[in-house]
Amino acid sequence: MFPQGPAADPAGSHGELRIRTFHPRRGRVTAAQADAINRLWPRWGVDIDGRPLDLAALFHSNTSGTPLPVVVEIGFGMGDATARMAADDPATGILAVDVHTPGQGNLLHLAERNGLSNIRVANGDAVILFRDMLPPACLAGLRVYFPDPWPKARHHKRRLIQPDFIRLAVSRLASGAVVHCATDWEPYAEQMLEVLSAEPELINQYDDGYAPRPDFRPMTKFERQGIDKGHVVRDLIFTRR
């Protein structure tokens, strides 16, 4: 369907023995999303295939030609919030990672429609991205908004925010880089706070607790649905030493 689009398994990741935090999802793709993937993936798409990534070549300012500072966002859904944050902060590059094909197409469509040249859409496993493709201290931030909470106890090991992943991610963050997580699942928020607080290279910007909801993180449809169900949304904002 997408001869030059996102690969079904870009890194051959079926050969890895570790537990997955996600399942690849194709889903129903609209005509507009399919058109955006077919036209824009060669220019703005990145398959997470394990090969080192040149962020300076991937992100550069249209005005000065100098590389943009880059944040990685893991799990962007349909991309509406990502697009709004990119529009509000054109001086920052966003490498947005997901495995949901309709969302990938939608974010590419939004980026083109709104002239957002500071977005790149990455397809695949974020662990492989951080482990094999990014050099140390290259990122200005990490955003993880409303990741799958895997609520059943036997599935907690599938949650993304675990000590091993945070240790890996922090090694790719520059000093002063910001780690921002958000969830509407209270037990997961507690785990996030525990894991992030235990990482010695991170400093909680709000003493030992949760952050107030920041204005720069757009309200999403998913977040509104959680609030309507009585869920409490927690933000956690930490800085790399």
Rank of each mutant, 00 (worst) to 15 (best):
G93C: 09
T183H: 06
I48P: 00
A169Y: 13
P147D: 06
H14E: 14
V232D: 10
T82P: 02
F216D: 14
A174I: 07
P151R: 07
A153D: 09
R131H: 14
F146T: 03
Q33C: 02
R43T: 06
K221T: 09
R159M: 02
M192V: 03
L107W: 02
L160N: 10
L108P: 00
A7Q: 15
D235A: 05
N106H: 10
V121T: 01
I94S: 07
L53K: 12
W44K: 04
A86I: 06
H14R: 14
I74D: 04
P52I: 06
A198N: 11
T21I: 02
D184C: 10
H14T: 08
Q162A: 13
E16G: 09
A96C: 07
V127P: 07
T239Y: 05
Q33D: 03
V195Y: 00
D132F: 11
L196N: 01
I19T: 14
N204E: 11
M78T: 01
R20P: 04
S117V: 06
M133Y: 11
L134W: 08
P3I: 15
P90H: 09
A126S: 15
A153V: 12
L160W: 10
G115A: 05
L55K: 09
I94T: 14
R43P: 00
E223Q: 08
E194C: 09
T220L: 05
D89W: 11
